[in-house]
């Protein structure tokens, strides 16, 4: 059974194609990362999953059934643009939002209090929302999406603007929920978050799906040809013949090895040489990062531009458009 199934979704706003031929599925118990630069169609896709907008073509299925509004009782949604009633008391607000999701007032209020305890914001309960800090408001919103114990949790950029401590708190909450069999989808443009927590991803760029599947599958399709080395001393070993390119930083370097059938041996030989020249404090052989894979994929599928694309450039391209 799959929680979400998108098939050939397409959505056009006036002249701008927001999403084109997008398909993926989310299984129960999955932490699913929806990735892409700003304006790539993440929010549009999420909105179509919950019927805020309707796709021009293609089908959306939730919980193995074609989309109906009755399924929304099992979905929790944290929109990218946070919004709460500013003048409302926090508990009243959470109760109200819980009631809209079909809870009784009593149950909603009890769960709201429990969640506030869990997320360490008990002191916010009697306050007005507008008196809270932005981070606290974000936690309230986070709670609002989870009050009714949804089976599918959709989080649009859930960690933007949060400090690392709180971001970690929310992330581990999501991981907990995921381990109880809920499906969590979160969208982000931060590849490192995805790399750490997600077991399944979809990469989109300009409304097109570029890459999708489980993290392990995707990574295993790439050779372990990246080396991260932290060292002190001479850097003559960087002239080793198996090295294709090097990026030097202060105290460390990122190395890309030449394609070869014996990558593991090449890495060993490089390490041997490095030890002779310098004091090595870290030596790690790995697959390309998600960011590298993403950039590579974008360059493959789109007309090649001169020079190397970076995330920042991609964002600049997409950022001007309406993220609708």
């Amino acid at each position: 059974m799959s929680i979400v199934q998108l098939q050939n979704i397409r959505k056009v706003y006036d002249t701008k194609v927001a999403v084109e031929d997008l398909s993926f599925t989310i299984e129960p118990g999955t932490m699913f990362g929806l990735l892409g630069p700003n304006g790539s169609g993440k929010t549009s896709s999420i909105r179509m999953m919950i019927g805020i907008t309707v796709p021009d073509s293609g089908t959306v299925s939730l919980f193995d059934k074609p989309f109906t509004r009755s399924a929304l009782g099992r979905v929790g949604y944290l929109p990218e643009e946070r919004g709460l009633y500013k003048k409302m008391n926090v508990l009243a607000q959470l109760t109200f939002l819980g009631q809209l999701h079909g809870l009784t007032a009593a149950v909603a209020a009890r769960r709201a209090t429990l969640w506030c305890e869990r997320l360490d914001i008990v002191e916010a309960i009697p306050k007005k929302t507008e008196d809270l800090s932005k981070g606290m408001q974000q936690k309230i919103q986070f709670i609002a999406a989870l009050l009714h114990d949804p089976d599918l949790i959709l989080m649009d950029e859930p960690f933007s603007g949060l400090d690392p401590v709180n971001a970690f708190l929310l992330m581990s909450t999501l991981v907990d929920l995921c381990s109880t069999g809920k499906a969590v989808l979160f969208s982000t443009h931060r590849m490192d978050q995805v790399e750490k927590f997600c077991n399944s991803i979809a990469l989109i760029h300009r409304g097109h799906l570029i890459l999708s599947g489980s993290m392990r599958e995707i990574k295993s399709g790439y050779p372990r040809n990246r080396i991260l080395i932290h060292f002190e001393g001479g850097d003559a070993f960087l002239q080793h013949p198996c090295i294709e390119s090097v990026t030097r930083y202060n105290g460390h370097a990122e190395i890309r090895l030449r394609p070869s059938a014996t990558l593991a041996d090449d890495a060993q030989s490089l390490l041997t040489q490095a030890i002779q020249h310098a004091r090595v404090s870290r030596f790690q052989v790995m697959e390309p990062t998600l960011e590298e894979i993403f950039i590579e994929k974008v360059q493959e599928t789109l007309p090649v531009k001169t020079g190397k694309l970076s995330m920042a450039q991609l964002e600049k391209e997409g950022g001007g458009d309406i993220d609708a």
Partner: peptide, 16 residues
């Protein structure tokens, strides 16, 4: 007010 506070998006996820 609801447009500027963007609360409606949460609401639209459950109601028409």
């Amino acid at each position: 007010e609801e447009k500027t506070s963007r609360i409606f998006e949460v609401m639209l996820a459950t109601i028409r």
